[in-house]
Amino acid sequence: MVGVQPAAYIPEPEFGANGSTPRKKAISNPYLHRLQRRHFLLFDVLPIFGTAAAFAFLAVHPIGATEIALLFSMWLVTGLGVTVGYHRFFTHRSFKAASSVATALAVLGSMAGQGGLVSWVALHRRHHECSDREGDPHSPNLAGDGLTGRLRGLAHSHFLWMRRHEYPNIIHYAPDLIKNRALVRVARLYYYWVLLGLLLPALVGGLVYQSWEGAVSGLLWGGLVRIFVLEHIIWAINSFLHMFGTRPYESRENSRNGGVFALVTFGESWHNNHHAFTDSASFGLNWYRLDPGYWLIKMLSVCGLAWDVKIPSAERMEARRKPENGNPVPSTTA
């Protein structure tokens, strides 16, 4: 998973000698770094203070069923927007969907405040290309050996990398998205969608309690606390699940499964499974592994709103499975 990025920055293409091939896969300049710092402060640091404010505000307005319902419902829909929409649909194209579904997923994913759609997709595709190697924007395994190196790597991959990093050239990594004009129009409204995700719970809180205190409480719990909780759940996949967990399948990076977190991550914690089969709509791969993101995709499929849902065959999964004796399996295509 990747985190927060500029909403819709499209760099000028840099062409090679033949005038057609982009020269650079990643771009770094002061303008981009300013955008990254601004986004980092607004959507990574501010929710920390917003969460602290929510607890302080309990002295003015105690939490009730409305706040709990807003926190859960907004966490659920925006979390699915990121995991099913940004990740499985737009990045990996693991299924096809109706244009109305694509738009809804783009809007809900944007409301999570974890970055503009095109930038998010480009960063995640670069992550898979360079995973746990030079060029990976958020690997925890490139900061040195020993306890100090591991702690420094976890801090970088979980949170600090978003302050400043190379920006992937979206012309190289996300040409399919920038060719879709309707989608780009939705993506360019990223900051408005984030604002909508804050105003909606504030409006509901104000209407339910008929007071400004209710509106503030709704904003805090359904908005800032929700962003804080979802962000750290998603970021833990970047950090902890590239260092700790099980590895049932061969993959060239250090991705791990953390099945105990499957529900709260919408199935994304089957991370080794995902890296082994990047085009799979199911991360759990088997029916008995909890995967709420895949449940949504199956529901959309049953309703005729999604199709061509990709799942690896049993033979393909067996070919990638690590043998119990630890000997490597010959590499196959993912």
Results as ranks from 00 to 15, higher is better:
Arg133Gly: 12
His156Ser: 06
Asp145Phe: 10
Gly146Gln: 07
Leu183Thr: 07
Ser100Arg: 06
Leu105Arg: 03
Ile178Trp: 05
Ala182Cys: 00
Val118Pro: 11
His172Glu: 13
Ile178His: 06
Leu123Asn: 15
Arg181Asp: 11
Asn169Asp: 15
Arg125Gln: 09
Val107Glu: 00
Ala122Tyr: 05
Ser94Ile: 07
Trp161Cys: 06
Trp120Glu: 12
Ala112Leu: 03
Pro140His: 00
Thr103Val: 14
Tyr167Ser: 11
Gly149Ala: 08
Phe159Lys: 09
Asn180Met: 05
Thr103Asn: 04
Leu105Cys: 06
Arg88Cys: 02
Asp176Arg: 11
Ser131Trp: 04
Ser110Met: 03
Ser131Gly: 01
Lys179Thr: 09
Glu129Ile: 11
Gly116Trp: 03
Ser99Asp: 07
Pro175Asp: 10
Phe95Lys: 05
Lys96Ile: 04
Arg133Asp: 09
Arg188Tyr: 03
Gly109Ile: 01
Arg93Asp: 08
Ile170Met: 05
Ala122Cys: 11
Leu142Ser: 09
Ala182Thr: 09
Ile170Ser: 03
Ala155Ile: 02
Arg125Ile: 12
His156Asp: 07
Trp161Ser: 07
Gln114Arg: 09
Gly116Gln: 12
Leu151Asp: 12
Thr148His: 14
Thr148Tyr: 13
His158Phe: 05
Ala104Gly: 15
Ala182Ile: 01
His165Val: 05
Gly135His: 02
Thr91Arg: 02
Gly115His: 04
Asn141Tyr: 00
Gly149His: 10
Asp136Ser: 08
Ala155Cys: 08
Glu129Tyr: 13
Asn180Asp: 15
Ile170Gly: 04
Gly113Trp: 00
Arg152Lys: 15
Val121Tyr: 02
His172Cys: 08
Asp132Tyr: 02
Gly116Asn: 12
Ser94Gly: 13
Ala122Leu: 10
Leu108Ser: 10
His172Phe: 13
Glu166Val: 10
Ala98Lys: 13
Leu151Arg: 05
Ala174Cys: 11
Arg163Met: 15
Met162Gln: 15
Leu117Met: 10
Leu183Asp: 05
Gly109Trp: 00
Phe159His: 14
His124Gly: 07
His127Thr: 01
Leu177Glu: 11
Ile171Asn: 14
Arg150Met: 14
Leu142Gly: 12
Gly153Ile: 01
Ser139Tyr: 00
Asn141Leu: 01
Gln114Ile: 09
Arg93Pro: 04
Val184Glu: 07
Arg150Pro: 08
Gly144Glu: 08
Leu183His: 04
His158Pro: 07
Arg181Gln: 09
Ser100Gln: 08
Arg126Trp: 04
Phe95Pro: 13
Arg126Asp: 12
Asn169Pro: 14
Arg185Ile: 00
Arg126Asn: 14
Arg88Ala: 06
Leu142Met: 13
Ala187His: 11
Leu105Gly: 05
Lys179Ile: 01
Ala187Thr: 11
